[in-house]
Nucleic acid binder design. Structure first.
Lengths: 342, 342
DNA sequence: CTGTTAGCGCCTTCAC
DNA sequence: GTGAAGGCGCTAACAG
């Protein structure tokens, strides 16, 4: 590996001069030397050693992306196209800003923070954090942090952080309201697990709000907490078909994945969709397109999410701004063929 | 951040002693000091600074994972669940070996190699490389490299490398042969693009071999190169339904994604599957399960792929072995409902 | 068994 | 406009 020192030898100047050229401090280098050094750097394919950078505390240029997969692991990492997309887009944005992406999967906050300090990581992007973990992250490090889709309790936190989320409440409201407008009165809500994540909680609240406004009473049994283990979930759904599914004319799901999965099981067991049952998803990802009928769902702009996340993170890193940033992106009702008037 | 020097001060020993404790060189430290230092490390939550490690050439503990997305970009990064899975599993394996994963997406070999030397990366995993890029990678760096699903021309290379792939030829052969056993005679082959990747080339060769053995003649028009742009591809498929799709009773696809995508378009245009047309996929990923009829396809064990990749890479990194390693994992014919006797 | 020292590559400060 | 020197944290070599 070629170093500044070697380049200096080759050209016959001091390392300082080479460093000045690298950092484009033209006022400190004669035009002649500037050109000579530039040429040598190019010809020798100089790449700066990141170890030196880190050690000199000049910034590691690393953004750590942390996947919190403690819960719902089966669905998330392996099957959820959202993670696929967001990671791809985050990498793109990080690279375009001249940074590097270190990907880390962890259940524990302290593990993640060790990583952060070992590598002198400049900023963190955290996916899928529960509110309590989010608070730990914020309290235990000084580094800029951007959460994606986490609902942080603002009152508990007196430090800066970034969250880029979605208008989940509106999404839940809009999709439920759409079913109501189609004449549906018996509408169930299906989420994954019984302990709702912040995101699902908001969607659920939106659903209930829509029911309330339409004077439809919500009963606890209208909530279906689906197991994230495939087998258990499918058994449950088959049983539902045999028992009380007929009480409902519409089902609101918290994700396209769950909606498509359930729709297939229902169809396998003789339910005609949408004629006998309207179904809605959430995400507008590839699942809602690669199924029949195509799902009515709530769309989000994943690329935009990644873009904003990195934009605000960079702003914090470069000290250009601070304060709490909590942006909830707009959602869009995407009407397709899984829903009909009743 | 707490350093070795500070720990040394706290305990009242030299930095060397602390370093010896950290590296468990018990024979060089008195039991008493060992315990005292251990305690101080724990209490102060010591984390070693990676900059120091890199600078001292003691290994960066980074594995670079490079996604080559030059071609088929639309499908790969955004929609292909394989990348999702493999990245998840790679991260898991890398972490379990005490390493860190740096993810990088790049079209250019030289960019990737710059990254490698800047970070003193210890090993590379390269996904989706074309054979010519693979050769460049191997020739231009001394670091251990593991390819996934790349067909490298062994004769051209006189250095070590690892490739973990799949018995793609067998896969193509098995699935085609299965259709033939069901009585199909008119079988088309659908791939993405006209210029086949190494993987698809092998699958295609397997398909042709099966035809040959059954005395079925292959004509060039039996090969369908599908556009990776959704719109163009769908237009093409719709047109196919109107024209010469009826000449075929079975279609072999090179991926589940393409198979499901096409199956939906065919069904939308009145083709009954499998009654009028048998379809097969390749990958046995979530797409082949979340569609109706479920796809007959070729299964692979993605986790095993990631596991072996990192296992062999670690072996090379620790100098325990060398030589060319080219492992092609077994495939498995998964018979589901998209295929019927004719 | 313990401690001192030098050096990895880079950057900044300060003399010249 | 240029260069010498010191320090970031860690480790291995060597001296005690």
């Amino acid at each position: 590996m070629i170093t500044i020192k070697k380049i200096a030898e080759i050209v016959g100047v001091s390392p300082t001069t080479v460093s000045n050229v690298i950092h484009e401090r033209k006022n400190k280098v004669s035009a002649e030397n500037y050109e000579k050094v530039k040429k040598a750097l190019r010809e020798n394919n100089y790449v700066s050693n990141m170890g030196g950078r880190i050690l000199g505390r000049h910034g590691s240029k690393i953004i750590g992306v942390i996947l919190n997969y403690s819960r719902r692991s089966e669905i998330n990492i392996i099957s959820d196209p959202f993670f696929n997309q967001i990671i791809g887009y985050l990498e793109e944005q990080i690279r375009m800003n001249g940074y590097f992406m270190m990907l880390y999967t962890s259940g524990s906050v302290s593990e993640s923070l060790k990583l952060t300090s070992a590598w002198d990581i400049e900023g963190l992007v955290i996916l899928g954090a529960l509110p309590e973990d989010a608070e730990k992250f914020i309290q235990q490090t000084q580094k800029p942090i951007a959460f994606i889709d986490t609902y942080v309790d603002e009152k508990k936190i007196n430090k800066d952080y970034i969250n880029i989320g979605l208008k989940d409440f509106e999404g839940g409201y809009d999709v439920t309201n759409y079913l109501i407008e189609l004449g549906h009165q018996k509408i169930g809500f299906c989420a994954d697990g019984n302990h709702l994540s912040g995101v699902d909680e908001q969607r659920f609240a939106g659903y209930k709000q829509a029911l309330t406004e339409a004077n439809i009473k919500f009963h606890n049994h209208d909530f279906f907490g689906l197991d994230y283990h495939v087998k258990q979930r499918h058994d449950y759904l088959v049983n539902l078909v045999r028992t009380r599914l007929k009480d409902y004319s519409g089902l609101v799901f918290t994700s396209d994945y769950l909606a498509v999965d359930a729709m297939n099981i229902f169809q396998d067991n003789g339910i005609r969709i949408p004629e006998e049952l309207s179904i809605t998803g959430f995400d507008h990802n590839i699942f809602s397109e690669q199924c029949r009928p195509k799902l009515t769902t709530i769309g989000q702009d994943v690329r935009q999410k990644a873009k904003l996340t990195i934009k605000y993170l960079m702003r914090e890193i470069h000290q250009k701004a601070s304060g709490k940033t909590n942006i909830l992106l707009d959602v869009e009702l995407v009407i397709q063929n899984s829903t009909v008037p009743v």
